[in-house]
């Protein structure tokens, strides 16, 4: 148990450091339009990379994950809120799971 607690504290440290190091290291304003654009594109890029292809294995069965992904994309395209998109995807996965077990 002590080992698990130490591991959790180490995880907390290496999660916190990247969040605050840039505040300590860089205090000047960045002028270059390239660096500014790069930093503005990063969130979209990183969320896309975190999502695809991992979403297809997120439910343990791609036959439930694919319908869930499609519903999430459709709801997001219609600009529904975060909660609606997440819950829509969960319900779709749940229902596809029920459908598959019924087959």
């Amino acid at each position: 148990m002590t080992k698990a607690i130490i591991a959790v504290l180490l995880m907390a440290l290496v999660t916190y450091l990247p969040r605050v190091l840039p505040f300590i290291l860089f205090r000047r304003e960045i002028k270059s339009p390239y660096i500014k654009s790069f930093l503005k594109y990063v969130p979209f890029s990183v969320l896309g990379v975190l999502t695809f292809p991992d979403i297809f294995t997120s439910t343990g069965d791609y036959r439930t994950a694919i319908p869930g992904t499609l519903v999430a994309l459709l709801l997001a395209y219609k600009e529904k809120s975060l909660v609606v998109v997440a819950i829509g995807a969960i319900i779709t996965v749940f229902l596809s799971g029920l459908f598959l077990t019924a087959l």
């Binding site: 975190l50 999502t51 997120s58």
Partner: peptide, 15 residues
């Protein structure tokens, strides 16, 4: 298992 997709659904809603 169905809850596993929640995180990615959120990411999709953001991008």
């Amino acid at each position: 298992n169905a809850m596993g997709i929640a995180l990615y659904g959120m990411f999709i809603a953001i991008i």
